[in-house]
Design a binder for these strands. Structure first.
Lengths: 279, 279
DNA sequence: AACGATTTGTTCGTATGTATC
DNA sequence: TGATACATACGAACAAATCGT
């Protein structure tokens, strides 16, 4: 009738974690200790811990113990879409945004690669065409924070956009660079936003488990020039546990200090359970 | 040296699922069969299955078996910021968007409630004030798709916005209704976007496991009137496994048919593993 | 309605391997 | 090197859910 024992143990530990009785660093008793505390077998205790691991509340380290996962302080990224400001891509923009948050931003040297056009289908190039990709890793306070890859048609490089091909940061952003150098103006863009589980590379970089417990947000931005042709494709992935976004549209008051809402007003109402009254 | 056996089994099954050898409905062999196929103990087979369950690829049903999870066809929600169109909140808007996708949209009758102002901190009301909440459930082709709650100050109702208080749909949207009735014009809004795990209510409604394997995207939209004061707060939650967004900014070409990008061009490059060259 | 067969869920025991200090 | 702690793997028994007879 009651919950199985391993769930009871997990619930008890969860309660202790959420109440703050068990916080950040090394905390949980060892399996042997828990086994005595709850008078259960080691396997049952392990099942309870496995449940908490799945929910991302604790992590186990072989030879050391089981630890409560410390929540990361989310970085709030502000995008002012209406002003036409090309939010969020240039490294200068990224750094200033993070600095406004009093945190230290770092951007890796871009890794330049040549890839088949199939790597960036949104650019709509011939199958035989090639694209240049500029890949950057971003850190905040030393912690990996986001990954970004921008794809350009090789023809842009051939027409004079040579810096696209150089493995160094373009602080003013490639958008401005392309306009100054080639006179190509970005007049709009389309973002496709989705949430998915990280692939192996992302999981390794972000230092999250590779079993999909931490989601990543992927934003694929296709930017267009004045002739409505795709100019570039920028793919950015943000792990959901450390990134939030704020978008201002139209006339809005100045940003006040916005504390993380957490679970203030969720979609749950007062107390009623789910009800299926459709229409 | 090699992967542990339960991972090998899981990988083998994952391969079969991804290759389509095992698709939608009831598929996986029983634990007893797998135990023979891989010459492993039942517990080891179960560990392999548990891994796939955690990754959301299969689900187990007691007394029946283990089944490959059918991926939902994602609904692509298009928001055109530049037109100033108040994307996504009015039920009329929602229905037409979904219909354009050739799918059947349903919206539940709003559930009206009175709540303390602390339920909607973004409105910046006195602690003693109260807010009206309008809560709606949305379905696509009969499947629960999103949850939305809009909060208004009670004073709006007292000033004449009585329909806010009635449990019936306002097809033209409350934005237009408030402008026509009270002359209050919405001039902009601020969206806070975050990804988190669903709470118990959401998990039940969306029919997803309550252990956080499926993330939800929460969009908190605070809309402002001409005097830059908060007019309303709309909280919408979308399960990530069935929703994607497209945002157009500036001048962009017409929407072509956009197949789900899936894992076309990720942030992984050709083949190189993660490298830590920061700066 | 009752029963049995099948299938997954829970719990224990035990042994051995691997990582860390 | 040894001690500690988690990881993997096997075996066994019973419970609970489901389905068909």
């Amino acid at each position: 009738m009651p919950d199985p024992m391993y769930r009871q143990i997990a619930d008890d530990l969860r309660r202790k974690i959420e109440s703050g009785e068990l916080a950040g660093g090394r905390q949980l008793p060892t399996e042997l200790e828990l086994r005595e505390q709850y008078d259960a077998s080691r396997n049952t205790v392990r099942d309870a811990i496995k449940l908490l691991v799945t929910r991302g509340m604790v992590e186990t380290r072989p030879g050391q113990g089981t630890f409560v996962v410390a929540k990361l302080d989310p970085l709030i990224i502000t995008l002012d879409w209406e002003t036409g400001f090309s939010g969020g891509e240039g490294s200068a923009y990224y750094k200033s945004e993070v600095k406004a948050d009093r945190r230290k931003a770092e951007v890796s040297v871009p890794r330049i690669e040549i890839q088949p056009s199939s790597a960036a289908p949104e650019l709509g190039l011939e199958t035989s065409a090639q694209v240049v990709s500029r890949h950057q890793q971003r850190f905040v306070d030393g912690t990996p924070w986001s990954l970004q890859t921008t794809f350009y048609s090789m023809s842009l490089v051939q027409r004079g956009g040579v810096r696209l091909f150089q493995a160094e940061d373009i602080p003013t952003g490639t958008v401005q660079y392309l306009e100054e150098t080639l006179g190509i103006k970005q007049v709009g863009w389309r973002d496709k936003i989705m949430v998915r589980t990280p692939d192996a590379t992302e999981a390794a970089f972000f230092q999250v488990p590779d079993d999909g417990r931490v989601a990543v947000m992927e934003i694929r931005r296709t930017a267009f020039d004045a002739s409505r042709k795709p100019l570039r494709l920028t793919v950015t992935t943000y792990p959901a546990d450390r990134n939030q976004f704020v978008v201002n549209v139209g006339e809005v008051p100045d940003e006040e200090v916005l504390g993380a809402p957490g679970s203030t007003a969720s979609n749950a109402s007062s107390e009623s359970a789910a009800q299926g009254e459709k229409e």
